[in-house]
Amino acid sequence: MRKHLITVDDLSKSEFMSILEQGKAFKEILTRPIKKIPTLRGKTIGLLFFEPSTRTKLSFELAAKRMSADIVNFTASSSSLKKDESIKDTVMTLDAMKIDIYVVRHSSPGVPYIVADHIRGSVINAGDGAHSHPTQAILDVYTIWERFGTLKGLNITIVGDIKYSRVVRSDIDAFLKLGAHVTICTPRTLLPFSVSSLGVKVNFSVKEAIKNADVIMGLRMQKERQDSGLIPDEVEYNHFFGLKEEILGSLNPKVLVMHPGPINRGIEIDGEVADSEFSVINEQVTNGLATRMSIFYHLVEA
């Protein structure tokens, strides 16, 4: 049966665990002198990036290459494609080329579903607007799971710009699915409306929110937030919601500091924290590669 990965909900808990386990094996391969394996030989992966992205695209591309897949690139900025222009026509053209897996990024929520409806292969959502970003959640879960062996009972605190973050939405879904306790910390103007039904705790003080945390995740402050008047300015934001150097003294040695990148030093995270011994921000990049290989593997196997 054809399988897609559009939201975290597309995965059962056992599938999730299986992606993590397999990811570990792929990560090991990435440490070998020859990092290429033949798993996807003869398969074609289409990278459909309607929205500019350097890091995510690079990660998918390299994952596909490490597995010997052929790659087709379709890059168009969302601005050149009007919202009402048919995604369908674009996608059907590509489908005629017999692509096995489509990796889709778009600024409009729901586009991966439109793609899935008109192609014969599988779709991986590489981020659709503020809706979902499941591969980021998987790599985040992997990073925590690799260190702690489980997510069950862990306290995970997410600090930052939450309201329109596809990363947070997917992360929260994944963390809760795997039994973690989640606390979010952000000004109330950046809280999603439905926060009370998300199953997370809210705390407006970073100091309190991270008190018993095993994992602290910072989020990128998007410039648009300030422009749309949801916060006064970066100085005040950093003061109250930045992961500041002062927190380092209060952390227990096992705490992980994560961030999906790219980081704004001095805004949501101070350099001293991003570069501290607690930080696994660079490790997340490696884990992104390993887990994306594992995701390709699972979709092809299915």
């Binding site: 006064p232 100085v235 005040e236 003061h239």
Partner: peptide, 9 residues
């Protein structure tokens, strides 16, 4: 009436 002030600080 345009931009939020630094209420926290």
């Amino acid at each position: 009436g345009e931009k939020l002030a630094r209420m926290g600080l």
